[in-house]
């Protein structure tokens, strides 16, 4: 079966890619296996090690979604502080946007006829 996708500019063959990925995973597995195994299930090793301190409660360890990408939104503060308030949740504003776009597109179409 032919699996190559010709985009007209290049080719993309997912099967070859997948086989290559599988070979790499196999190699990784072989390397990993040849290491020294000192891991024992159910022993002290399964517990998290925090420099000898007591482990905090589970909820305190997990980083929730709200904390991720804080730096990104902080860095683009100027953009987000304008963009987010536009989503007002007010039905009147939604309709205003629709009619605005309608008029704008109409104008564009008439100008660039």
């Amino acid at each position: 079966m032919q699996t190559t996708l010709y985009s007209g500019f290049g080719v993309w063959d997912p099967v070859i890619w997948t086989i290559a990925g599988a070979v790499i995973l196999l190699l990784v597995y072989l390397f990993w296996r040849s290491g020294v195994s000192t891991y024992r299930k159910g022993s002290e090793q399964e517990r998290p090690y925090l420099s000898g301190n007591a482990e905090p409660e589970k909820n305190a360890v997990h980083i929730g979604g709200g904390n991720l990408y804080w730096g990104f939104t902080e860095g683009l503060k100027g953009y987000y502080s304008r963009l987010v308030p536009v989503h007002t949740g007010d039905l009147n504003d939604y309709m205003l946007w629709y009619f605005g776009v309608l008029v704008a597109v109409c104008a564009l179409v008439v100008i660039f006829q």
């Binding site: 987010v84 308030p85 989503h87 007002t88 949740g89 007010d90 039905l91 009147n92």
Partner: peptide, 10 residues
């Protein structure tokens, strides 16, 4: 009032 019906926003 639409001003109050906006618990879903942003």
């Amino acid at each position: 009032e639409t001003g109050d019906i906006r618990r879903l926003r942003e």
